[in-house]
């Protein structure tokens, strides 16, 4: 289940207080960019000169072991782009991210080869997308979906893969009798739970969750959130939870960053963000809460 020792430092496993992820100045532009948008503070994320969209602009934060970091902001603020960059679904324009467990925490993971990035993703990260279609193969069996992640993380014993898949699916309350069914036959909430078990398959120290409860009804949303909370408590997985739902953030996150137009406009303890927001945008957001 674990990462080969060659790439792990023993010390990094003991250090509880050091961050497991450090992101510095992560920037992602869609478009070529021009001198104007590269060198000026823009009002919006769309450059008036060249039409380039700066989806993430100098985003920096740290994530501690076992911590949940909330990311809030309106649609188009760059939240999803940020996690997609971290999961290498998108290529960053500039900036760095350091995983403490990877090569002694001295390497920018964005500079790694595609092969190495695949390794990081398979062994050290899990991702749950808002849209289950992005995270699952709908025509494969659910157990096959989980197995896919296990195989890419270096597990080849069919019996053991089966055993682990049923254990994981059981953990997210997918009945064992339905583990070989295709996710397309499942409800949205069940699909989301299959995605979560797939993301957890390789015991990742870092889990990225992108709007995972959006579009689910309340009771199903509750089940998914309870599951996330249990995973955090039992397994000490660090998570980045992206959501525009402040209720979800309040329930899950210790710390929160607020994004607008690709920039981090405020960060702080979650209760502080919600009760004493500093930035005008955060105030608007919090005061719009029902």
């Amino acid at each position: 289940m674990s990462v080969p020792n060659t790439l792990l430092t023993k010390e990094s496993q003991d250090k509880d207080t050091s961050p497991i992820l450090q992101v510095s100045n992560l920037t992602k532009r869609f478009g070529e960019g021009c001198d104007y948008c590269k060198n000026h503070e823009l009002e919006t994320n769309l450059c008036s000169e060249c039409g380039t969209v700066t989806a993430c602009s100098n985003v920096s934060f740290e994530l501690d072991k076992g911590e949940i970091l909330g990311v809030v902001g309106e649609s188009g603020s760059g939240k999803s782009t940020m996690v997609k960059c971290l999961y290498f679904d998108q290529q960053v324009t500039s900036g760095s991210a350091i995983l403490t467990d990877f090569k002694d925490g001295e390497t920018n993971i964005f500079d790694q080869s595609a092969q190495m990035q695949r390794y990081i993703r398979n062994y050290m990260m899990g991702m749950v997308y808002q849209n289950p279609h992005l995270g699952l193969k709908m025509d494969y069996s659910s157990s096959g979906n989980v197995a896919e992640k296990l195989i890419s993380a270096g597990h080849y014993h069919v019996g053991k893969i089966r055993e682990r898949s049923s254990e994981l699916l059981n953990q997210v309350e997918i009945p064992v009798s339905r583990m070989d069914e295709q996710p397309k036959r499942f409800s949205g909430g069940m699909q989301q739970r299959v995605q979560i078990s797939k993301a957890l398959a390789n015991n990742p120290p870092l889990l990225l969750l992108d709007e995972i409860t959006t579009g689910l009804d309340l009771s199903v949303q509750a089940k998914v959130l309870d599951l996330i909370r249990n995973i955090q408590r039992e397994m000490q997985v660090a998570m980045i939870v992206v959501s525009h739902d402040l209720g979800v953030i309040r329930m899950l996150a210790d710390r929160t960053i607020v994004m607008k137009e690709g920039k981090v406009v405020e960060q702080g303890l979650t209760d502080q963000i919600l009760q004493d927001p500093q930035h005008s945008y955060t105030q608007l957001l919090v005061h719009s809460l029902l």
């Binding site: 303890l269 502080q272 009760q275 004493d276």
Partner: peptide
């Protein structure tokens, strides 16, 4: 109290 607890900045 909230300043001490940092609910307020």
């Amino acid at each position: 109290l909230r300043c001490i607890y940092r609910t307020y900045v």
